[in-house]
Design a protein around this nucleic acid. Structure first.
Lengths: 210, 210
DNA sequence: TAGATTGTTAATCGATTAACAATC
DNA sequence: TAGATTGTTAATCGATTAACAATC
């Protein structure tokens, strides 16, 4: 077995899909699966599946295939779902509120400890058990707590400045909903973007050019 | 000039970013730009930029570069921002509500005409001027109106069934927030997925393996 | 004109797919 | 054992980058 040094972005982005599919197979009570049948269900070649998995280890058995539950747990482990990452929400407008209310953070291995906003209307309250603090208290909070990731659900106008402030406080992971590209000088800072507008524009393109 | 038949997914996904960057350059009052400087601003090679644009036409001028406003408008046109696509929101929970309230649909070339939900608590009201109807009235509405795209902000449990119902009604564009892969037999149906959980999991992976 | 920069062709790089020996 | 299926190496395909003639 030869673990790869550099896992390509394409592979990483397929991992959550594998994880989802395997979770569903578990729920359906499927015990074992071959790369071939998994590929059929997911519209991926068996070759690619085996290549992908082989980046991380040897999870299968010749002549048998993969044990679904075991493989699921391995991929979950690779994704870090058992790491108990701690997340803080920056901005509790409609979107931040929606995420706090609905998103299954715990299933993804995240705990949401706090949220921050500038609006006196929400400061001091809580959403779904998550307390909302003033942005004025952000620096102290981050210094005193272990925060792995922040979700940025704030207006574009303050996005880069707020990100800079958070990076200075040592935050390395940004779940960015602002639809702008955030800049950094630190190579170990990771941005994961959810660009709603970009996404809708690609759909616009596709329906306009089908 | 040789327009390509098949534009790759990678190219399409870069178009909205070009469009954003050019919009910003316009706002900054920049009149012309070369592929080289645009590339520097966006962290893309000048080669790739010229290759990308050349899929759609000849927008530049030798020795000069590109006129920012003109290029922006060309790319906007390619993306279909001037097509006035019509969108309907299926599901007005926290997320649907947040989108209706905040998302700049018109800037993306979309008009939101209606929203649908099952909850009597919201049926009959409106959000940001968009009327909310009962899901019981969905079929009639779709038959009587021109709807290009639906946004699916509904629970996973009803996602595929609702999508099937909509596809039977002739809907071809799905902006899918349910974090499941939707299936179709119609090749001209387009799904654009926003998978929050997948996105957060890739971030989880990256911070766990940096 | 000379310098700059395009659009496009060719070269390189990386990702996907195919093939197959190893082995359960 | 024979059949099935893995992990991995080799072949193919596609996307990115480099080079350059055309030309503003």
């Amino acid at each position: 077995m030869l673990k790869k040094e550099n896992i390509s972005d394409a592979v990483i982005r397929r991992l959550p899909r594998y994880y989802r599919q395997l979770t569903e197979l578990c729920a359906r009570g499927v015990v074992r699966i071959s790369s071939h049948s998994l590929g059929q269900e997911m519209n991926i070649t068996a070759s690619q599946i085996r290549q992908d998995f082989s980046c991380f280890g040897e999870f299968g058995q010749q002549g048998y295939g993969y044990n679904v539950e075991e493989l699921r747990s391995e991929i979950g482990h690779i994704l870090g779902v058992d790491n108990d990452h701690h997340l803080v929400m920056i901005g509790v407008g409609n979107l931040g509120h929606a995420l706090l209310q609905n998103f299954p953070f715990s299933q993804t291995g995240f705990t949401v400890d706090a949220a921050f906003d500038v609006s006196p209307a929400v400061i001091g309250s809580n959403v779904n058990g998550v307390p909302i603090y003033s942005m004025d208290d952000l620096d102290i909070y981050i210094r005193e707590h272990n925060v792995d990731v922040v979700a940025l659900t704030i207006p574009q106008s303050v996005a880069q400045d707020t990100a800079d402030r958070l990076m200075e406080l040592g935050i390395k992971g940004f779940w960015n909903f602002t639809n702008i590209e955030l800049a950094t000088t630190q190579p170990d800072v990771k941005f994961e973007n959810i660009h709603f507008a970009d996404s809708l524009l690609t759909l616009s393109y596709r329906i306009a050019n089908r």
